[in-house]
Design a protein around this nucleic acid. Structure first.
Length: 422
RNA sequence: GGAGAGCUGGCAGAGUGGUCGAUUGCGACGGUCUUGAAAACCGUUGACUGUAACAGGUCCGGGGGUUCGAAUCCCUCGCUCUCCGCCA
């Protein structure tokens, strides 16, 4: 959620940004400014009246204390009339506030100046490419066949236990999951991230804080009895750790990492997108979250990109980094880099990480603030990124590193897993 | 799941209808004293909103109610603690 300040002070920038993001209803900006104007007027009237009432009530108290009951009684009658007006004003004010809030949460974040214009994934900008493309012969198998051949993953069994998109990993398959999680967490904590274990269900307030509610309600599993949501990413609990907190300069930057399963309903997906490990309802992910000062957030974003890139390099996978165009970016992001790895056997790029700067879009809603060196309270910037989502990494490891005698794992995984799956 | 007790400023802890946004202690910050430190003494010390700056408004777990007036009374939800039950 953007700050009102921006609408009032930088209307032109807001309009330009919304256009780049292909936001359909720019009139909303004028409506926000007008509603805010009205809200302020009501607030002023309401508070002036409240001040009078407060003073009168205090007066009554004093008169009662002094034993002047008659005078107190006549004041009471006077106040009773004003109360009606106060109530009505307050109600109007509340309505205006609610309306304003509803308008403002429907406006997406503004894109950073470096975000390319565009409407679809084709308009994303390839920043750079790395790793070596594997030379596979025509008999190369997709990961779902390899998973069956080496008995790593049982999709059918998952269907029996739960439904599609909930695979069962076993033997070397289960071991590989554990190895990857451990390796990723070690890599992150060595870079100064603090490791967390967080709840896999969150309440409404947390889901709202990171922006899953109200927009993406249908994408989360909902435990209605207790009104909890299964997390679609550990970004939700991690970022909410600092909801409603005021940080000191010395506590910054906050760097957190966590492994959790992620749960997504993925309503509307079908076809080759959901084949094998490409898209699941439950999958494992190691996440990074940072909170920084506004001045350093873009440096931090670049550092996070380097960090994730380094991880991909140690896995010896061909990858590319994209800067998402305005139309392909998420509602909450100001600048997003997507990481894709190339699946040789499927001959397609698969997204394995998304690293974003949200600026103050999330922290404004969650009231995550700090005191700067001059003692002034300011909103922090929040950033996050995956490092990494497991299923597609597993898919690409299997496909790209397959050889006649088995799957040869990258050296980084040897301490956790051994050298070969056969 | 059942019964009871609680939730107040960074922390501890008073306050049970009216000059209470809140006594006091600790902590923190500044000062006096000291070569420096400690001790002692003096002072400062919540957030949000609003203003050019004052003023004003809101906040005593969340929400609602009673009242001219609520930290204080009532309802409701959440959380913590104690006991019972169940349990990895």
């Amino acid at each position: 959620m953007l700050t009102l300040h921006i609408f009032r002070q930088e209307k032109e920038r807001v309009l330009a940004g919304l256009q780049k993001k292909n936001f359909k209803i720019p009139e909303i900006v004028d409506e926000i400014i007008a509603t805010d104007e009205r809200k302020r007027q009501l607030q002023q009237q309401s508070e002036t009246l409240a001040a009078t009432l407060n003073a009168t009530s205090k007066n009554i108290g004093q008169l009662m204390g002094a034993g002047k009951t008659g005078e107190a009684e006549s004041l009471k009658k006077q106040v009773a009339e004003q109360k009606e007006a106060a109530k009505s004003l307050q109600q109007q004010l509340q309505e205006a506030e609610a309306h304003l809030h509803q308008l403002i949460v429907s406006v997406p974040n503004l894109p950073h100046e470096s975000v390319p214009a565009g409407t679809s994934p084709e308009d994303n900008e390839v920043v750079r490419q790395g790793g070596n493309m594997p030379q596979l012969d025509s008999t190369a198998a997709p990961h779902w066949e390899l998973a069956q051949q080496y008995q790593l993953i049982d999709f059918e069994l998952g269907n029996k236990l739960t439904g599609s998109g909930f695979p069962v990993y076993r033997n070397q398959g289960a071991r590989l999951q554990r190895a990857l999680v451990q390796y990723f967490l070690d890599y992150n904590t060595q870079a100064g991230y603090t490791e967390y274990q967080v709840p896999l269900m969150v309440n409404e307030e947390s889901a709202y804080g990171t922006g899953q509610l109200p927009d993406k309600e249908g994408q989360m599993y909902h435990a209605t009895e207790d009104n909890f949501y299964l997390i679609p990413t550990s970004e939700v609990p991690l970022t909410n750790i600092y909801r409603d907190t005021l940080l000191k300069d010395s506590e910054l930057p906050v760097k957190m990492t966590a492994y959790t399963p992620c749960f997504r309903r993925e309503a509307g997906s079908y076809g080759k997108d959901v084949r094998g490990l490409n898209r699941l309802h439950q999958f494992d992910k190691v996440e990074l979250v940072q909170l920084t000062t506004p001045e350093t957030s873009y440096e931090t974003l670049e550092a996070m990109v380097k960090h994730v890139e380094g991880l991909l390099q140690t896995l010896d996978l061909p990858y590319r980094i994209l800067r998402l165009c305005g139309g392909d970016m998420s509602f909450t992001s100001a600048l997003t880099y997507d990481f894709e790895v190339y699946s040789a056997a499927q001959q397609r790029w698969l997204e394995v990480s998304s690293v974003s700067n949200f600026e103050h879009f999330q922290t404004n809603r969650m009231k995550i603030r700090y005191k700067d060196s001059t003692g002034k309270t300011q909103l922090l910037h929040s950033l996050n990124g995956s490092s990494l989502a497991l299923p597609r990494i597993v898919a690409c490891l299997l496909e790209n590193h397959q050889q006649a005698d088995g799957v040869h794992l990258p050296e980084a995984l040897w301490p956790y897993m051994g050298k070969i799956i056969s």
